[in-house]
């Protein structure tokens, strides 16, 4: 029994670790899409910042420097996306896709040129990574049944970026519903002409949203290569940006819903990796690949309106043309 409980706690703990980059990216997606800009470039921004974080952390021996560089490069990609989709009124899906492919090519090309390790960055030393933070008395309190074990196994021992990701959800919810900027952001995604007639710049608001999204994606990338992993591996995002996109849709473009969806998808991945190679009663070999496909399937079902209805912001994907 105690062993089963521990297994369960370890899975929850893994869920948080796996969900962290999803949460950061999903919040980035909310900022971008609530402002009316489709953002399928979450994947590319995260991949690029994962590379830059690891590369800069290696060169400067500082994880913090790596993270700031990652944020910088994600913001730059966001601005490129903005240039294409806000200023030049190009196709937002194509622009996002281009950024994803660009990131795939650029990370490996530059990685090979810089480190000659087939696109990887050198393995990071302790000081170059974000370390787990053991909360006070974790070991002593760990003896207490249930609460103590939860404290020791699930709450303690995460790195700072996990906490930042959870904070980002509160930040996103607060920004969207409690600030003037948030009100404008939502308005610009629903009815940009209303905001325009009130004298607020549609383009400026959308650019700001993309910059905030860049900061969040940058941290997600830094988490992958310098906190969760210890170095950059080619294609290390492996579709996580798209899962985050799915989670955002699954959460109906709301911070709380998206958080829950990320945790659900993270949980599925954590369970799948625990079940790898395990023989289950009745069905035999655990169908890990199919469990991993569930987030995509659930999103399709939800989007099709079979369970509830996910409504995107009304002006999403439409470049704003100022009337004269």
């Amino acid at each position: 029994m105690a062993d089963l409980w521990l297994q369960f706690l370890l899975t929850i703990d893994a869920t948080l670790r796996v969900a962290t980059p999803l949460i950061l990216c999903a919040m980035a997606g909310i900022f971008s899409e609530k402002s009316g800009v489709i953002d399928i470039s979450l994947e590319g921004k995260m991949l690029m910042s994962a590379f830059v974080a690891a590369a800069v952390a290696t060169l400067t021996s500082s994880a913090i420097a790596g993270m700031f560089a990652a944020i910088g490069v994600a913001i730059m990609l966001g601005l490129l996306h903005g240039l294409a989709s806000i200023t030049l009124r190009g196709n937002q899906v194509i622009s996002g896709l281009a950024i994803n492919i660009l990131a795939s090519g650029l990370t490996v090309t530059v990685g090979i040129a810089m480190f000659q390790q087939g696109g990887q960055t050198p393995s990071l030393a302790r000081a170059e990574r974000f370390r787990p933070i053991e909360l006070p008395f974790a070991e002593q309190l760990g003896g207490i049944p249930i609460i103590g074990t939860i404290y020791r196994e699930v709450i303690s021992g995460h790195n700072i970026l996990v906490w930042i990701a959870l904070g980002a959800v509160l930040f996103t919810a607060f920004m969207l519903t409690r600030t003037r900027f948030g009100l404008r952001l939502r308005a610009v995604g629903e009815k940009p002409e209303a905001l325009d007639s009130a004298g607020v710049s549609v383009a400026r608001t959308r650019y700001l949203a993309l910059i905030i999204a860049g900061v969040l994606c940058g941290m997600a990338g830094a988490y992958l290569s310098t906190a969760h992993g210890s170095g950059f591996v080619r294609e290390m995002t492996a579709g996580k940006g798209y899962i985050a996109l799915a989670a955002m849709i699954f959460g109906k473009w709301q911070p709380r819903g998206a958080l829950l969806a990320c945790l659900l998808f993270g949980f599925l991945e954590a369970v799948a990796s625990r079940l790898q190679g395990v023989e289950l009663p009745l069905i035999g070999q655990a169908p890990v690949d199919l469990i991993l496909a569930l987030p995509y399937l659930l999103t399709v079902i939800l989007l099709a309106g079979f369970v509830g209805k996910a409504m995107p912001p009304r002006a999403i994907g439409e470049p704003y043309i100022k009337e004269r």
Binding site: A84, L88, G90, N91, A98, I101, L106
Partner: peptide, 17 residues
């Protein structure tokens, strides 16, 4: 992988931009 880079740029220039 250089080709992926060129491909991404072509999509960017002929689509997004």
């Amino acid at each position: 992988e250089m080709v992926l880079l060129i491909q991404g740029l072509i999509i960017l220039f002929s689509g997004g931009l």
